[in-house]
Every structure is written in C-alpha cells, then in structure tokens.
Design a protein around this nucleic acid. Structure first.
Lengths: 227, 227
DNA sequence: GGCATTATTCAACACTTGTTGAATTGGATG
DNA sequence: CATCCAATTCAACAAGTGTTGAATAATGCC
C-alpha cells in the first residue's frame, strides 16, 4: 500500500531512466502530436518520470528533438551509401529495389522519423526544418548517384531525370509505409504487414517499367524485406 | 492620430468581417501549424479581429475546422465525378492526366486543404480524422472507377491493381504540389510554377508507362494546366 | 556509518490556450 | 433623436505550456 498510493514522498525512485528511454518516449509523442503540440509532460508520462528529469539529460525541448534526429539519420545514410558503391555490379533494378528495402528496414516501425523526413514535425520551426533538410540531402544525393550509374550502364532511359526519379522513388516508399497499413487493409483482404510488401512490389513494378531502358526484359528476382 | 493609437476605445469597428474571411485566415494558420498547434488568437490576428468574434460565427475551434472542410471538398468531388463519366470516350491516358489537372486546379494555392487530405492537420484527433476520410473516400473511389473503365476498354495492363494505382497517382500529385516548389527550384533552374508542371509531366510519363497495356504507343497530347 | 555525487521529484514562475459573459459600437428603423 | 439589433471587443476564467531552483532519495566510496 505504501507503494501504490504514497501520498507525500519526494524524489522516490532513481531507477536509472537513461536518455535513450527518454528518446523513445519523445519519438512516440512527437510522432503523434508534432513538435509544437507535443508536451514535455506527455513525454515524461510516457517515460514514467517527471518532466524535470528531461532537463537533467537535455538542455531543452528542442535539444531533445535534435538528439532524436542524430540518433537515427546517420545509420540510414550509412546503409544508403554502401548501396551506392560504384563497384557494385548488380543490375540497377536490384539496387533500386534495395533502396526501398533499406527505407523499409529503418522506417518500418518508426512513424516518428517518417514524419521527420516528411517535415511534418517541424511545421513552422524554421531552424529545425533546415537542420532536417541538411540530414536528408546527402541521402537523396546518394540515391541519385544510383540513377546516374544506371544511366551510364545503359540500363535506364536516356531521357530520365535522375533527381525527379529519386524523388518519386523514395517519396512513394514513405507513403507506402505510412498509409497502406492504415487505410487499405480493410479494403483488400491482407494483413497490414503483407499489405506493405504487396504495395512495395506493385510500386516498384510500376516504377521500374517507367524508368527502364527496356521494360520488356524481365526484372531480376526481388527479395522480400528481411523480417 | 486618434485613428492609429486609440488607447482605450471599446468595440470600435464593425467592418463586417464575414465568415468566409475568417475561414481564409483559419485555413492559412491551420496549414502552417496544424489543428492542435494553431491558435484562435493567431487566426484572429490574421483576420484582423478579436478572437471572440470567431465564436460569434462558429461554435468552437473544431466547428471552424469542419466548416473549412465542407467549403472545399464537395467542389473537388464534383469535378472528379464529371471526369469519371462512363460516356466519356477520350483515351484513358488523357482522362488520367485530367485527374492530375483537377487536383492541380483545386489544390495548387491551398496548402491547408493539401495538409487536410494528407491527414496531417488532425494528427491524433480521432473524430476529425474519420470525418476527413469520409470526405476523401468517394473521391478515391471515383478515380478508381476510371481505372476500371480503362481496363474494360483494354487500354491498361490486365494485371493492374486499380486501387493501388489510384493511390499512387493521386498521392504523388499531392507530393508534387507540395514539395517540388519548396525544395527543387534551387537545384534545377526552373521557377516554382513551371517546376510543378515539369514535375507533373515527368510523373505522368513514368506512371503511364507503368500502367499502360502498350506503353510504346504514343500518349495523346497532354494540355498544360489552365492558369 | 558518513559523505559526495548522481538521478530524480516538487513547487512554482510567467505565459499561452480555448472559451465565455458582459460591455460597447455602428447602422438601420421608427 | 431614440431604439433595436447585429457585429465586435474587453476582461477574465481555468487549464495547460516550457522552464527553473531548491529539495530529496539512492548509490558508491571511504
């Protein structure tokens, strides 16, 4: 009884709530409410601690957010860069499909970072929007280089516009991860997870037919995302 | 002087701020901040009136938002329905392009309603999210019927999935309207407006090649959006 | 056991929010 | 000119916000 209803105790349970745990809670709340509307009290509630504790680990609400940013983006960029190694001789179709797989792996269970990439979380917070763009740009340019390589190898339509193609490919993957599980499963009879894979394949099929030099030659085998 | 700096006057200038003017201001502010973070005071400031006036015309913040919803969506749906008339014998490519033109016409200058469609504005506000979905669904099904007609006429790949194709086509158009003018013009040398048209054509070219039964037969002439 | 340090909470601050009720104005009508 | 009404503002409310400084509990070290 003194456990559940302790009426007046002060600073009771230092159970080592490490910063990562706070970041997890912050990510969840930010994803739901956006940067502006998300409250530190809501984050603290989620993390099971007092709002003041956040200020012990982070300087401010904004610092908490940028810490979130630097936790995930570098990993994503790294994976993308490995994909774009010019020595990679796999067919371009396979490598572009791998771009979708990387996005799937990193963003599947993380609506927060998806919203970040979309720029939603920081609507109207100029400094942070610029910071996010700064994290995203190298990733976009990396994928773009994949298209340049594909063009040089004669596997893509010569009139292709690499930057727009990059934009189309990645952007739609974000939408697929976000929207398909939310709205389509009750229109088609598929579970949310296989709905995403189904959508990814349909999208890439359409996309590749649109960008390939000769869409009639069959695509290489496209592996499912690792689960 | 008594005009600019009137220090203590009460209820001064009934200049007939009609509800539509309030809706305009609300739309702008909602688009920037989202439903939760947007404040009635900011809306009132934008409209040049007192926050209380909003309550004279609308019952609450939420009522103001739903009024916004019912102002634009029906018009959009109507245009889309005219497009999907089964008697229309134009080539399917031309009709699908017209879908993009309708979206362009209605949403080009209206980031607020774009954000509504994307569902951003109402993150975490359950009732409203359902209400928006209710407005969007008939529009989606209308466009879907266009694909069904195209399939029946043998102009589309028989293995096409109409619902996914609808999703891809419309969703990317939203992204084009939102993102291309914001991020690409300083990477490509095009003005924001022609950037959008450029992007739309590139997108539809890719899309059509992806869904057509025989992408090698040339597309009909695709008119520019009317400006 | 005493002590310094670290992790945590409490209580309060100044401010903003949606909302309301009463007060005020301008114009039309008599 | 007086009266009525619609349009508008003022002033205040309770609740929630980010943030801070002081207080407290647990932990490891001597």
């Amino acid at each position: 009884m003194p456990l559940a209803s302790r009426p007046k105790s002060r600073g009771p349970k230092p159970t080592k709530v490490d910063p990562d745990h706070l970041l997890d809670a912050a990510q969840a709340v930010f994803a739901e409410d956006g940067l502006r509307a998300a409250s530190l009290r809501a984050i603290a509630r989620r993390a099971g601690c007092d709002p003041s504790l956040i200020y012990y680990h982070f300087a401010s609400k904004e610092a908490l957010f940028t810490a979130l940013l630097h936790r995930r983006f570098p990993l994503l960029l790294q994976d993308m860069k490995e994909l774009a190694d010019p020595q990679d001789v796999r067919p371009t179709a396979e490598r572009l499909w791998a771009v979708l797989l990387v996005l799937h792996r990193h963003l599947k269970d993380d609506p927060g970072i998806r919203a970040m990439i979309r720029g939603e979380l920081v609507r109207g917070v100029d400094g942070l929007a610029a910071l996010i763009e700064e994290q995203i740009r190298p990733m976009v340019l990396t994928v773009r280089s994949l298209f340049d390589q594909g063009l040089a190898r004669g596997e893509l339509r010569p009139d292709l516009q690499p930057l727009l193609a990059t934009f189309f490919l990645m952007r739609m993957q974000l939408e697929i991860l976000d929207l398909l599980p939310a709205v389509l499963p009750h229109l088609v009879n598929l579970g949310p997870e296989s709905m995403v894979i189904h959508g990814m394949r349909a999208w890439f099929d359409l996309f590749w037919r649109g960008v390939a030099l000769d869409p009639s030659i069959p695509m290489p085998h496209l592996p499912d995302p690792a689960v």
